[in-house]
């Protein structure tokens, strides 16, 4: 009877695995296509040269981080409402992926700044808020790994994940509310003091749009799905260990 019942479950798991692998292949191809549009298809900026092409991934990585960390907020709220561990797993996946994309955004921005601003780093409001955002989520991972009790850890992580999103919002809007920032706005009008801004030609706009979709939809969803898989395996290992100890 058990075997009969478990068959549809196993078939469903196999289907999900095939779907995940298919999504992974599609994502890898999409990233390569996105790089083609960024590095070959889009025209070269006459003032900045080829380094401007970093912006196609720099901006898109932030969009991806926004989505992944937004998933953490959604999952955190869902966990606090239902106390179902699967939401905590999704929230954790969102933070790990969002943090990696946030680091890509920060590092590529610094590399772009070196030839354009003549410095690797400056305590500009946008750069400072982006750095605080990355450090806040790095702290999330460190703090949650230090809490032994599973319920306390999940509750703490849910509340932290929701509150930490304020750093993402601040990073997003700071170039609109702080006139002293020198960071250019790629979409919309740049602040008055912005240095290194550029107008998007039709080919640049296409490259930006394609990369935005790839890095904010395909990349975070695929990576979060794999991360959830790992956490599910960890839960299974924990259950097997407990059973082995009981025996």
């Amino acid at each position: 009877m058990t075997a009969v019942r478990s068959m549809p479950l196993e078939a469903s798991a196999g289907k999900r695995t095939r779907l995940l692998w298919s999504l992974t292949v599609v994502t890898v191809i999409a990233v390569i296509v996105g790089l083609y549009f960024a590095l070959v298809y889009a025209g070269t900026d006459v003032e900045q040269g080829h380094v401007q092409r970093i912006f196609y991934v720099h901006v898109s990585a932030f969009a991806g981080a926004f989505i992944a960390l937004g998933v953490t907020v959604f999952a955190g709220i869902a966990y606090l409402r239902t106390r179902t561990p699967k939401w905590d797993t999704l929230a954790l996946a969102g933070v790990e992926v969002g943090l990696a994309l946030g680091v890509i955004n920060l590092v590529t921005g610094s590399i772009w700044a070196r030839p354009i601003w003549n410095t690797w780093w400056t305590w500009d409001p946008r750069l400072t808020s982006a750095a605080i955002m990355v450090l806040t989520y790095a702290a999330y991972l460190m703090l949650r790994s230090g809490i032994e009790n599973a319920d306390t850890r999940r509750r703490f992580a849910a509340v932290y994940g929701i509150l930490a999103f304020s750093t993402v919002i601040i990073t997003l809007i700071i170039i609109r509310i702080r006139p002293d920032t020198i960071h250019p706005a790629v979409i919309g009008a740049s602040p008055q003091n912005a240095e290194g801004g550029f107008g998007l030609t039709p080919s640049m706009l296409t490259a930006m749009g394609i990369n935005m979709v790839i890095w904010s939809v395909f990349v975070p969803i695929t990576l979060m799905w794999w991360r959830v898989r790992i956490e599910d395996l960890a839960t299974r290992v924990h259950a097997l260990r407990l059973r082995a100890l009981e025996d």
């Binding site: 080829h50 380094v51 970093i54 590092v107 590399i111």
Partner: peptide, 22 residues
């Protein structure tokens, strides 16, 4: 047009390293 190609390669390498580490 300034030659900033080396910084583009550095940026691409950084993206690759971070993604590969994850």
């Amino acid at each position: 047009m300034p030659d900033t190609t080396a910084y583009l390669y550095l940026g691409l390498a950084a993206i690759a390293v971070i993604m590969l580490m994850l």
